[in-house]
Nucleic acid binder design. Structure first.
Lengths: 174, 174
DNA sequence: CAAAACAATTTTAAGCTTGAAATTTCTCTG
DNA sequence: CAGAGAAATTTCAAGCTTAAAATTGTTTTG
């Protein structure tokens, strides 16, 4: 890609000449921050997708779904998975279908409420996931390796503030 | 992906020396940071998608494509757009098809090289985009409003460091 | 108890995305 | 100048994603 210009890599419809603090109704600083955030997560995410496909012939959604189930040894209700992954219920349906076909997941109907589907990792699925999770952790570690520990800590804190801001705005406005 | 419930747990990051004493293959701090970053950008991105659909019956990919063209009054070659948006060429083909049908884009074949397609915003497309861009800036501003300016600045700097780390790792390993 | 209301999930229709294969059009080499 | 090779784009097959409608099952209410 095109090197060191901040906006050469991601969607970059913002004017690069912006200063950090400007007139009250100028939103350029926030836009630039958002673009930089998006660039970072897009870079990491595409690389993770690429490697999941290359090394495991799998996808990020499947990995994420299995990751949710890994921490629920007794399985989890479909709706709960959907909420935790922040994706639509219909989306989960499709993913579960494929992962069940391939033997990674088991699915049961709750006897006391037959609307409810409970899914869980099979032993095979768990073994596969553990391989993937180990590699995934290595990838992230490599990608983040140039960041000093202190910077990691600062980022964690600042992102926590951002997350609170976003959630507050969502709760208020929409 | 990822509900990011790690707010409950105390950051084990902050102390670099402590971290150095941990097991060599413990990547939890990086993973937690990555998940938090991903949560933030997913939250913002889904909200932007939702509002583009509700207010303009449009999508984020279309918006991004028009944003690229907004700064290129004389139009842009398809391949260039593809690179800048970091998406596959085939993807651009589909987007351009639809946006041309709807009158937002014009497309010309370069006379001197008939392989090359040049696309540009039509006056209508430009007017539409400007409306969308203004609203988009408002949304981002609202979502980020709870962040103090100083935090925004720190975040910009730390994300720049992260981006450098990711790009360096991609250049080296990938 | 039957009907309405509610809940969990699936289906549907539409659009996005990708990698790989195919196509079209140049460009370069012998 | 022909044919090889490269470049720009499109096509294709497969999978992801969503909102909205439909389905199935449970609970509440008249």
């Amino acid at each position: 890609m095109t090197g060191d210009d901040e906006f050469a890599i991601a969607p970059d419809w913002v004017d690069g000449e912006t200063k950090a603090l400007e007139a009250p109704h100028d939103h350029r600083a926030e836009l630039r921050l958002w673009l930089r955030l998006l660039t970072c997560s897009t870079l990491v995410e595409s690389e993770v997708r690429r490697r999941l496909r290359e090394e495991f012939d799998s996808t990020l959604p499947r990995f994420d779904l299995m990751a949710q189930l890994e921490r629920a040894p007794d399985g989890m209700v479909l709706g709960e998975v959907s909420k935790r992954m922040m994706v639509s219920p219909g989306n989960i349906t499709v993913l579960v279908e494929r992962l069940t076909e391939s033997g990674h997941l088991s699915r049961t109907t709750l006897p006391t409420d037959r609307r409810v589907q409970i899914i869980a990792l099979t032993p095979f699925g768990r073994a596969e996931f553990e391989k993937m999770a180990a590699r995934h952790a290595d990838w992230i570690s490599d990608l983040f390796a140039g960041l000093e520990p202190v910077d990691g800590g600062v980022l964690m804190d600042e992102l926590a503030k951002l997350k609170r801001s976003v959630i507050a705005s969502l709760a208020k406005g929409g």
